[in-house]
Write a protein that binds this DNA or RNA. Structure first.
Length: 293
DNA sequence: CCGCGGGCCTGAGAGC
DNA sequence: TGCTCTCAGGCCCGCG
């Protein structure tokens, strides 16, 4: 489900109720997520205060007073929901209206300020891990990750160097979290369309023979940043189940130019093409064969 | 080292 | 209605 914009939306929703609050009680209703929950998961959380809630790529990172970091990943179908002690509850029929538990509610955080934060994940590709803060950068899941796409370290020079010599497709290279961390299937398709680059192009063609960026790398980097920023602004994309933590839908899906728009007219100004769907690495790619070269 | 396909899960939707 | 099949926003792992 969630790519960087959706995870960032979740982070912004959770931060006001989690930062500065203590885990008063933690319920681990189901421990068999993508990986089993860490040893003593509940005990290591209860009593700890959340000093800050950050994000690295698609990971949420809660800094705990114990010196550990709670790493949370939403997988394909994970979501968080907040119920506050008084006043308005989560609107609509989102998971469980009146604070009751629903199917696939696996982890429940009862915060010291009264907020109840529930992790729901039907497919259980999501997971949580605990690691000492000082070891975070060396953690196997963090160590090899490329730069944040919205950070200054992600630029044409860096991207060209990362893909130089790569025989794989540009689509696959951008999905590779070692190249740049946080993009997923949707935003790769959208960024490539904005940059007018074919997903089938060899990744190495963003660089010249010396590994320096060319005009294509120069176009792609700002296209990636623009689509991610626009999506964050819109509260992410809600296809099947992504919600903001207050239950509201994101609305960036209405701004997709190619993703899930097979057969529609290419939205590029003056382009006569039609959006095509192909399969790369077992996953759908949407693009315009006319204006993406 | 790299690239690829399989596998992990559940649910929604299409087609018969 | 109900069954079967395909597909889904991620990513680790084993293989060649």
């Amino acid at each position: 489900m969630p790519e960087l914009p959706e995870v960032e939306t979740v982070r912004r929703g959770l931060a006001p109720v989690m930062e500065g609050a203590r885990f008063a009680k933690v319920e681990a209703r189901r421990g068999d997520l993508r990986w089993p929950l860490p040893e003593q998961f509940v005990q290591r959380l209860e009593g700890q205060t959340v000093a800050g809630l950050g994000r690295r790529a698609k990971y949420l990172l809660a800094d705990l007073s114990s010196g550990e970091v709670l790493m949370m990943h939403l997988g394909m179908s994970g979501s968080f929901r907040i119920a506050v002690p008084s006043g308005e509850d989560t609107p609509g029929d989102f998971h469980h209206p009146r604070g009751k538990l629903a199917a696939h509610d696996h982890i429940v955080f009862h915060m010291s300020n009264g907020a109840v934060v529930t992790f729901n994940d039907p497919r259980r590709f999501g997971f949580m891990k605990l690691t000492p803060r000082v070891d975070l950068d060396a953690h196997p899941l963090m160590r090899a990750m490329g730069p944040e796409p919205l950070g200054n370290a992600f630029n044409a020079e860096m991207l060209a160097e990362a893909v130089a010599g790569k025989s794989t497709s540009l689509k696959a290279a951008l999905l590779d979290q070692r190249v740049v961390a946080g993009l997923g299937n949707i935003y790769v398709c959208e960024a490539l369309h904005r940059a007018h680059l074919s997903p089938r192009r060899k990744a190495s063609t963003l660089a010249d023979r010396k590994g320096a960026p060319n005009v294509r790398a120069d176009a792609l980097v700002p296209a990636i940043k623009a689509v991610l920023n626009a999506a964050i602004e819109a509260g992410g994309s809600s296809l099947r189940d992504h919600r903001q933590t207050d239950g509201e839908l994101g609305y960036f899906q209405h701004h997709f130019r190619v993703y899930d728009r097979e057969g529609e007219k290419c939205p590029t100004r003056g382009c006569t093409g039609t959006v095509k769907r192909i399969v790369q690495g077992g996953r759908s790619t949407f693009y315009c064969p006319v204006c993406q070269k």
